[in-house]
Design a binder for these strands. Structure first.
Length: 377
RNA sequence: GUGGGUGUAGCUCAGCUGGUUAGAGUAUCAGGUUGUGGCCCUGAGGGUCGUCGGUUCGAGUCCGAUCUCCCACC
């Protein structure tokens, strides 16, 4: 079994996940590099230095540019990207619904226009699996429809049924692809995605249906897209009892450090979010003392590092005043240093969470961290 | 020196024949950002309308003088 549960405290889980690209310690935060690059000029050497375990790239983006067939010819994403640890590829489903202007969704798949040049693109369960097989990521995500979490019950009901049918097609196609002789990663794993908006009956029914497929892991999708944090926590609590306990659980696209602490407490093992990297590019830092907006004038002559308690490459050598200056001067080093810091902060937060679970002091750590990280510097 | 143009927010500029509390973009300041388009969204502060005088119930707007800068010609 790839996933092994080491310890549990309430619903919170401490585990290890074995893959062909190495073992992942969970709970884990995956560092997002959509186009096989962490935005902000961060290299894979940097990723190793900031203690990244799993990198996440995007099927849709890499399909549009440079093309998954090209990456296959270049030996797969790991060789192309120079990253030998696990990679998870998102299926492209979310992008179809968040980026595409014009789309037409049918049973067969989704026809839409590329956000790059308007060229027609067709995405189906089979196409998504073929792209991800070409990329040869460690973990492939199933193609799902991601409707607005607050869409009406009737629509999400029908959408969930279609996502189940798509999931069967994904598994069948990936099984076929993994057996082909020119497949780069014949052990590519598949995670299914739970949908159902904010409706308990749909979430539970859908989770039960996809659990029957006995996949390598299960994700909760369609959250943090309009509903409140409290609704998100409620949905996790309601669906968690129906998620296989011997498989990793992945909460897609979440979230803030507080969201992650609350979700770990409700049994989630995997996370990914653009928040630390995107906010970093705009000067919004996560620190051990809470949120810090480096654009604030009060940091103009502040000689302290971004976070005095941090030993990331940015905090070891540079002051708030200097990095703030870099932002005002629009120097790209500003973004690089802040992205390194925020990702390191997230990766270190996950280490602290794992230490707390290992050490048996999860509840007290969580309560203290929620209070501390919710502050503002 | 002569003729023409110009002057309004830190910057670039709107402001129709005179009419509520002078606007926009950008910059600044402060929020937001959740399966990534270095984007975008929201709010705030900021002006003796070059200066002085005149006409008028009322002037950024009309008149006179003066100063600034730009252009052309001598």
């Amino acid at each position: 079994m790839a996933f092994k549960l080491l310890k549990q405290d309430g619903a919170a889980r401490r585990g290890v996940f074995r893959t062909v690209h190495g073992t992942v310690q969970t709970p884990v935060f995956m560092n997002v590099g959509t186009s096989a690059a962490i935005k902000g000029g961060v290299s894979t050497d940097d990723l190793r230095e900031i203690r990244c375990q799993v990198e996440l790239s995007n099927t849709y983006h890499l399909h549009v540019r440079p093309g998954d067939d090209l990456i296959h010819r270049m030996g797969g994403l790991h060789r192309f990207f120079n990253w030998d640890r696990p990679i998870l590829t998102d299926s492209g489903g979310f992008q179809v619904f968040s980026l595409a202007q014009l789309r037409n969704i049918r049973e067969e798949g989704v026809q839409f226009q590329s956000h790059m040049d308007g060229a027609p693109v067709f995405m189906s369960p089979e196409v998504s699996m073929r792209i991800q097989s070409n990329l040869a990521s460690t973990i492939a995500m199933a193609l799902d429809e991601c409707p607005s979490s607050v869409a009406e019950h009737g629509y999400i009901d029908r959408s969930c049924d279609r996502t189940v049918r798509w999931l069967y097609r994904c598994r069948e196609e990936l099984t076929r692809l993994n057996a082909l002789p020119d497949t780069i990663n014949p052990h590519q794993m598949l995670f299914g995605i739970n949908q159902g908006g904010i409706y308990t009956d749909l979430r539970v029914r859908h989770m039960k249906q996809i659990a029957e497929l006995d996949l390598d892991g299960y994700a909760i999708g369609g959250l943090a897209v309009g509903e409140t944090a409290e609704e998100m926590y409620r949905v996790i609590e309601e669906v968690e009892p129906f998620m296989p306990s011997d498989r990793p659980r992945y909460l897609m696209g979440v979230g803030t450090p507080l969201n992650i602490l609350e979700a770990v407490d409700r049994g989630v093992d995997f996370f990914d979010c653009v928040l630390p990297s995107r906010n970093a590019r705009h000067g919004n830092l996560f620190t051990s003392e809470g949120l810090l907006n480096l654009n604030n004038r009060k940091f103009a002559e502040d000689p302290l590092p971004l976070d005095p308690a941090c030993d990331c490459p940015a905090c070891r050598r540079y002051s708030r005043a200097y990095i703030r200056h870099l932002f005002k001067a629009r120097e790209m080093l500003a973004m690089r240093l802040c992205v390194l810091h925020n990702l390191y902060f997230y990766n270190r937060l996950m280490e602290q969470i794992r230490d707390a679970l290992d050490g048996g002091y999860w509840k007290s750590f969580k309560a203290e961290a929620v209070e501390r990280l919710g502050r503002r510097v």
